[in-house]
């Protein structure tokens, strides 16, 4: 019985992230449009988009291989699984230990790997450009991300997300400079990973500096739907990750009752909604960067994270 309860709780989390992701995307789009003095699409527009795309005929190039067809599902699956393994409303769910923070980052890398390959499948220049830049961004972001993981795990003594969240809630963490720096660094990485301004512009693929949109240029129909859904999920995933690592308060920890879950859920939804509002505000304040400015941006993230590690050493004593 307890097992079924746990399974349900885990399943609920899976469905939750899937359900909420397009909405989060809708919120960011709406806020951004408002900030730009447009009316913007309705909040539920992403759902409609996905729904519509799913029902459309998929048009594929003559040369497209099985890899091209399989990638959207793999991308979606990895992103979904990764998102579902991050504690949202509760820690210690049934399968929360099957992947720690590093594994989740790596899971996303699997999706990216597949997508980059798919971008090269048909043999267009645009696809190649997108894949190439995607891999550049990844190589810039991953060291910074590792240092983020390093710092967080040093503070919490674990890389298990549930355990980190619990430590942040209950442990005597206090307000650490290191954590602040790491948060900053994490946000940079998240922006890069989600192809947001100033790294990439998610709203267009007719600009020469595009990355993510160039990779998926050839996709259409249900495949595109999967990719769009995965993108939305990834954004949600990073929001959840941020919440879990830095703002885990309100999560159900010891108490696994439905009430605790409900409270946790409410906290979670309000927190990511807040982030969904903050993101476009930040985005409208900056301009898109040239590709060869990325190292400066992500190098900043890396330096900040490195500083955080060293400061942590200092504060813990050698």
């Amino acid at each position: 019985m307890a097992m079924i309860y746990d399974l349900v709780a885990q399943g609920l989390q899976m469905i939750l992230v899937l359900a909420v992701a397009p909405f989060i995307l809708g919120v960011t789009r709406k806020v951004k449009a408002r900030l730009l003095r447009r009316i913007g699409p309705p909040l539920l527009q992403p759902y409609r988009d996905i729904w519509k795309l799913m029902h459309k005929e998929a048009v594929m190039a003559h040369d497209a291989s099985w890899l091209y067809r399989g990638t959207p599902y793999l991308l979606f699956a990895t992103t979904w699984v990764a998102a579902a393994l991050i504690p949202t409303y509760s820690t210690g769910l049934l399968f929360s230990w099957s992947a720690d923070l590093i594994a989740i980052v790596a899971l996303l890398a699997t999706g990216r790997f597949a997508l980059a390959l798919a971008g090269m499948d048909v043999g267009t220049a645009f696809g190649g450009i997108g894949s190439s830049r995607e891999m550049l961004i990844a190589s810039l972001a991953e060291p910074a991300m590792l240092l983020v993981v390093f710092t967080v795990s040093l503070v919490a003594g674990t890389t298990q997300l549930s355990a980190i969240a619990e430590h942040m809630i209950h442990g005597s963490v206090g307000l650490r400079v290191s954590l602040g720096l790491v948060l900053f660094s994490f946000i940079f990485v998240a922006i890069a990973e989600n192809a947001r301004i100033p790294i990439d512009n998610p709203a267009t693929h007719l600009e020469l500096t595009m990355v993510h949109e160039a990779m998926v240029l050839e996709y259409s129909g249900r495949h595109l739907a999967m990719i769009e859904a995965a993108a939305a999920l990834k954004l949600t995933l990073y929001f959840s990750l941020l919440v879990c690592l830095f703002l885990p308060f309100g999560m159900a920890t010891g108490d696994k009752s439905p009430l605790a879950f409900a409270i946790g859920l409410a906290f979670y939804l309000s927190k990511i909604m807040l982030l969904a509002v903050l993101l476009p505000i930040a985005e409208t304040a900056v301009a898109k960067m040239r590709v060869f400015r990325y190292p400066v941006f992500l190098g900043g993230a890396f330096a900040t994270a490195a500083l955080a590690v060293f400061l942590l050493f200092v504060s813990q004593g050698f």
Partner: peptide
């Protein structure tokens, strides 16, 4: 949804 698929030339924007 649908499983309709059509092969065509590369679009390439």
């Amino acid at each position: 949804a649908t499983r309709a698929t059509r092969r065509s030339a590369i679009w390439d924007c």
